[in-house]
């Protein structure tokens, strides 16, 4: 017996969901969804669970992650209940549930809090910069160390425990029986989905969207490697320098396109933007743009005179690493691929 929780709908609405309670259960959304299958059908089921507030059922479900938001369901909905946007909100809500710190939830629900966090981090960076006398060399060096430490600690203390919590909600708590060897066999799926977003291709809308997203992910990951491990800003190898330019350009171009889409609101997927979506795309735009400029200034040897550009880049970078990656939309990159992994675990081998 599951107890109906009438308060839940109000909670989920704080994560951005539209008028999903207008749903009259026709099932058009599920019928029109190109990813939904007979055995694994959505989004209708998720709308129903959300309406009734069946939190445990939602937490145990991977379906929100299995949707890649083409928006066809929202376009076809006879009640304008925006099922696609509800699935998006459920992903935000799930992210908040997985996060043991509880910060994700707070940031998702409150714009003031998010802005405060950004301002605080920004202030911290300025305080740090002033403490080193705005000396470029020190800033760049410590900035580079920061990158490495941030990656390590965020992964270890935030992302890893959160993935374990996700596993607990999906597999542990509902007592899904998974043979140990499956955890190894399924790893293949994890990496394939992490680097290709293969399932995205199943969406019926234009596949250019997948392509953009795909090169963005590749660009982002390689830029990460280029800056952190190949130390792009200090590199002298022409190949590495050019690689970094290209990667940051790709990120910039693709994310600008995303931002324009969200401004134009022509596609179903870009009609509903929450602050967390803006932070993410704008963060990426700035990350790509400032990184590109910093390296450009280095190559034109004018960075010394214009160290402010590096300071801005550092601000964006720290906000990105301390807010957006651990508690923001960045996590969808991880949860989506792990969702595909756990989905594989749930089907018996």
């Amino acid at each position: 017996m599951a107890l109906v929780n009438p308060e839940f709908a109000a909670e989920i609405t704080k994560y951005g969901a539209g008028d999903f309670k207008a749903c009259f259960n026709c099932g058009n959304c599920t019928a029109t969804c190109s990813l939904s299958t007979t055995e694994n059908s959505f989004p209708r089921e998720m709308i129903r669970y959300s309406t009734l507030g069946l939190e445990d059922h939602i937490k145990a479900s991977l379906k929100p992650w299995e949707c890649y938001y083409c928006g066809e369901c929202s376009a076809q909905c006879p009640r304008q209940a925006k099922p696609g946007e509800l699935m998006m909100s459920l992903r935000r809500w799930l992210t908040a549930q997985y996060d043991w710190t509880g910060l994700s939830g707070l940031l998702y629900k409150s714009l003031t809090l998010s802005l405060t966090a950004f301002v605080l981090v920004l202030a911290g960076v300025i305080v740090f910069a002033s403490s080193v006398g705005f000396e470029l060399e020190k800033m760049v060096r410590i900035g580079h160390y920061f990158e490495m430490i941030a990656i390590g600690s965020v992964s270890l203390f935030i992302l890893l425990p959160n993935i374990i919590r996700m596993w607990w909600f999906v597999i542990g708590k509902p007592k899904v029986k998974v043979p140990i060897k499956s955890y190894f066999i399924a790893l293949g799926d994890l990496f394939v989905h992490m680097f290709t977003q293969k399932r995205y291709l199943g969406c019926d809308d234009n596949q250019f969207r997948w392509f953009e997203h795909f090169i963005l992910v590749i660009g982002y990951l390689t830029l990460l490697i280029t800056t952190v491990f190949l130390d792009w800003f200090s590199a002298t190898n022409l190949f590495i320098i050019v690689l970094g330019y290209m990667e940051s350009l790709v990120i910039f171009v693709v994310t600008v396109d995303f931002v324009l889409d969200r401004i134009k609101k022509k596609k179903e997927v870009s009609k509903n933007s929450q602050p967390s979506d803006w932070f993410f795309v704008v963060g990426l735009v700035l990350l790509g743009f400032t990184g590109f400029l910093v390296r450009l200034f280095i190559d034109f040897k004018i960075l010394e005179q214009n160290s402010w550009i590096y300071l801005i880049h550092l601000m964006v970078l720290v906000q990105w690493a301390l807010i957006i990656v651990p508690f923001g939309k960045w996590t969808h990159f991880m949860y989506r691929s792990f969702a595909m992994y756990m989905a594989k675990l749930k089907v018996s081998f």
Binding site: M1, A2, V4, N25, E45, R48, L54
Partner: peptide, 16 residues
């Protein structure tokens, strides 16, 4: 109220 909800795949539900 205890019943099977046909809109939720006949899930047994409770409403207070």
């Amino acid at each position: 109220l205890k019943f099977k909800d046909y809109l939720t795949a006949k899930m047994p539900l409770e409403v207070e």
